[in-house]
Simulated assay, not measured.
Amino acid sequence: MDPVESVGDFVSKILSRKTSARSITTYRGHGSTEFKLSPSIFRKSLNRENEHILLRELIAAHPEDFNGDTTTLEILVRMQHYSLPTRLLDVSMNPLVALYFACESIKKRVPTVRAGVKGTRSVESDGHVVILEVSKTRARYFDSDTVSCLSNLARLSWKYKRQIDLEQELESFNESTAVKRLLHFIRQEKNGFLAEIEPEDLDSVYLVKPKQNNKRILAQAGAFFAFGMTEEISDTNNDGIKISRITIDGEAKAEILVELDKLGINEKTLFPEIERAARYITGTLTPSVMSRLVS
């Protein structure tokens, strides 16, 4: 499939796709086709092994920002908002939002030969929009018990995470010290939670529909994939997630961003925080624009 070179090309490809009433289609944009479908917490071993510390450190430093959060999922969503690594993977219900992120500038070095001399030069990487289709039976809401199990893994120390044996029988699994510790965290937000966690739930990835109480989630039509012990969604995953991709021509990224801006998809609308709006506005103030504003 030829790389997309315009918003029109992209929309045509999206509209030509077949969809099913039994599935939910989500989108994620990557500025490079080399990026994997892995949450940020799993991309560095140091972060993965200190996940429980990162969570507590941010809350300890800014407790007032988390006062309204009653579940670990809500805490992780807020952490994601502040760019701290989490076990959540952002997706959007709006393909144009994913296209915007696929046009992020990512440079790569490519070999060249000039006058018989070998060298390298920097070029813009192709991006891609990853389309993730998941059965509605694999989607959960913010108050799901399964989501509580997955999100509270973030509070479990690396020592206990390594002790979790997903091959154990259900009774033995729930009698293990690590799972009892996980249960303790879950009951802090759901005191009526039964002392029974399914091993297969912790080995899964689920699409989560969060509360629409976050400006950025609203602006980006956002949702998340919540990860358990699995660290990446592969093309051959066992979670029933069908994956396809649309490649974005690296040389067309800048022009596509201009076209998206005309459609109201830009830094100011997708990131409603005041500092991002200020950065966008400053970047659009060319001399010709200024002259029109003061005339």
Rank of each mutant, 00 (worst) to 15 (best):
M1Y: 06
P3V: 07
E5R: 04
V7M: 01
S12I: 07
S12G: 13
L15H: 05
S16M: 12
R17I: 08
R17L: 14
K18N: 10
Y27V: 02
R28I: 04
G29I: 12
G31C: 02
T33G: 06
T33D: 03
T33Q: 14
F35Q: 08
K36D: 02
S38F: 05
S38H: 03
P39A: 06
I41C: 06
I41R: 07
F42Q: 01
F42H: 02
R43C: 04
K44F: 03
K44L: 07
S45P: 07
L46K: 06
N47G: 09
N47V: 10
R48K: 13
E49S: 05
L55N: 08
R56W: 00
R56S: 10
E64Y: 04
N67T: 11
N67F: 10
G68Q: 10
D69V: 11
L73G: 04
M79S: 13
Q80F: 11
H81I: 13
Y82H: 15
Y82S: 11
S83E: 15
L89H: 07
M93F: 14
P95W: 02
P95R: 00
F101Q: 08
C103K: 01
E104I: 00
V110S: 01
P111V: 09
V113I: 15
G116R: 01
V117I: 09
T120H: 03
T120R: 04
R121V: 05
S122Y: 06
D126K: 02
G127L: 01
H128M: 13
V130N: 02
E133F: 11
V134F: 03
V134I: 15
K136V: 03
R138E: 01
R138H: 01
R138T: 00
Y141N: 12
D143G: 10
S148W: 04
S148F: 15
C149Q: 15
L150V: 13
S151E: 02
N152W: 06
L153C: 04
S157I: 05
W158Y: 12
W158A: 06
Y160C: 00
K161H: 13
K161W: 05
R162G: 13
R162I: 10
Q163F: 11
L166N: 07
E169D: 15
L170P: 09
L170D: 14
T177G: 04
A178H: 07
K180R: 15
R181H: 05
L183E: 01
F185D: 09
R187I: 12
Q188I: 09
N191C: 09
N191R: 11
F193K: 10
F193L: 11
E196N: 12
I197N: 10
E198A: 14
D201H: 13
L202S: 09
L207M: 10
V208Y: 10
K211D: 08
K211I: 07
Q212F: 03
N213Q: 09
R216W: 01
L218I: 08
L218D: 05
G222A: 03
F225A: 07
A226D: 00
G228D: 04
E232V: 03
S234L: 13
N237Q: 12
N238T: 15
S244T: 09
I246N: 05
I246E: 00
T247F: 04
I256Y: 04
L260M: 02
L263D: 05
N266V: 00
L270M: 07
L270D: 04
F271G: 03
F271T: 08
P272K: 14
E273G: 10
I274M: 15
R276C: 08
A277V: 15
Y280G: 05
T284N: 09
L285W: 03
V289L: 00
V289G: 02
V289W: 02
L293E: 05
